[in-house]
Amino acid sequence: MPRVTLSDVSLSYGEREVLRGISVDLTEHRIGIVGANGSGKSTLARLVNGLVRPSAGTVTVDGLDVARHTRQVRAKVGFLFSDADSQIVMPTVREDLEFSLRGRGLAAVDVASRVDRALVDFGLADHADHPCYLLSGGQKQQLALAAVLLLDPQIIVADEPTTLLDLRNQRRFAQLLAELSQQVLMVSHHVELLTGFDRVLVIDDGRVVADDTPQVAVAAYRRLMGEVVR
């Protein structure tokens, strides 16, 4: 598995401190990140892809400093947003998948065959020429994942990818992510989706307050949220 390292990372927007001195070394296959709204967990996820830059400290992916080698890092790290709608950038399903391979110097036949395979793998073959806005929420998130995987990333960072899905699609999509051979970093509110994960971090007020197996970390998160454990 690749190694994502945060060394004493802090980040603030003006007066507001979002992350306060986080140091973690992430080498497990499936890593969950939970936390309340505004805890800084989404910001943490964005750091790994260089979508935001730390005010202090460094983030490295396989030894590459994200701030200095952003391009190489982004080639390794695929990013899934919670709103698939903002991630799908092209008018039709096929075009959006083709977009992933844009500017990589691939021959048109190679692009077509890889896109065709992805369409079949993700159950989107019947919708290849449909406008993306006609897809269901679950299909949109499938398309977003297919588009990310076409880039051959080694790490998938997913920022609350199941928030807009119904219960059945939440489980189905989390299952899909958990079965990937890539390293998966999933930020989620839905703690029950993280049970099969290897490690779960709990973020609160910009700090890592628990870092353990899902059972232990999720229990700590529930206590933090003041939830009555039945």
Binding site: L51, R74, S86, Q87, V89, V148, L151
Partner: peptide, 17 residues
């Protein structure tokens, strides 16, 4: 929406040229 779209483009490594 433009913010989200810009972020999505960046995350997908575009524009490459």
């Amino acid at each position: 929406m433009a913010d989200g779209l810009g972020e999505a483009l960046v995350a997908r490594g575009q524009p490459r040229d």
